[in-house]
Amino acid sequence: MRAGKITLKHRDIPNLDMPPMTMVFQVSDPALLSGVKTGDKVHFTADKIQGAYTVMSIAPAP
């Protein structure tokens, strides 16, 4: 994880019309990353903000 960014391998993201892939996302608030670490499986929401794919929420998967 780089400051304000995270690389995620994800499934389809219907609201972004995005197929499964691995990609770097911006993070709406870098504090969101404090609850996850490299290798964690996570649940997240993302949106396109000013042209950048941005994680809006993220939490470790149960």
Results as ranks from 00 to 15, higher is better:
56 M>C: 07
19 P>K: 09
7 T>I: 13
22 T>P: 00
40 D>G: 01
17 D>H: 03
7 T>K: 14
22 T>W: 09
56 M>F: 07
24 V>R: 10
10 H>K: 02
51 G>P: 05
62 P>Y: 08
32 L>N: 02
14 P>C: 04
46 A>Y: 03
23 M>R: 04
18 M>H: 05
41 K>L: 06
50 Q>V: 10
61 A>T: 08
6 I>A: 15
15 N>I: 11
37 K>Y: 06
17 D>W: 00
41 K>V: 03
18 M>Q: 11
38 T>D: 12
58 I>T: 05
60 P>M: 07
46 A>T: 04
41 K>Q: 09
11 R>T: 15
46 A>R: 01
24 V>K: 08
36 V>W: 03
7 T>R: 14
2 R>K: 13
3 A>G: 12
55 V>L: 06
60 P>V: 13
25 F>R: 04
45 T>K: 03
54 T>W: 11
11 R>C: 14
18 M>T: 04
7 T>L: 12
35 G>P: 01
29 D>K: 00
59 A>D: 13
35 G>A: 10
59 A>Q: 14
32 L>R: 00
43 H>E: 14
4 G>L: 11
6 I>V: 15
5 K>H: 15
56 M>D: 11
14 P>G: 05
43 H>M: 09
54 T>N: 06
49 I>P: 01
57 S>K: 13
57 S>T: 15
55 V>M: 06
15 N>Y: 09
8 L>V: 15
60 P>S: 06
12 D>W: 05
33 L>E: 04
31 A>W: 00
27 V>Y: 06
36 V>P: 05
43 H>V: 08
39 G>A: 02
7 T>D: 14
57 S>G: 08
30 P>G: 01
33 L>D: 06
14 P>T: 02
11 R>Q: 15
57 S>L: 12
16 L>W: 08
44 F>G: 01
12 D>L: 09
50 Q>H: 12
62 P>G: 13
47 D>F: 02
31 A>H: 03
24 V>Q: 10
1 M>Y: 10
43 H>P: 00
34 S>W: 10
2 R>M: 13
16 L>E: 07
35 G>M: 04
42 V>T: 05
21 M>P: 03
31 A>C: 00
38 T>S: 07
24 V>I: 10
26 Q>K: 13
40 D>W: 01
28 S>K: 07
2 R>F: 10
14 P>N: 07
56 M>G: 05
18 M>C: 08
45 T>S: 13
14 P>E: 09
9 K>N: 11
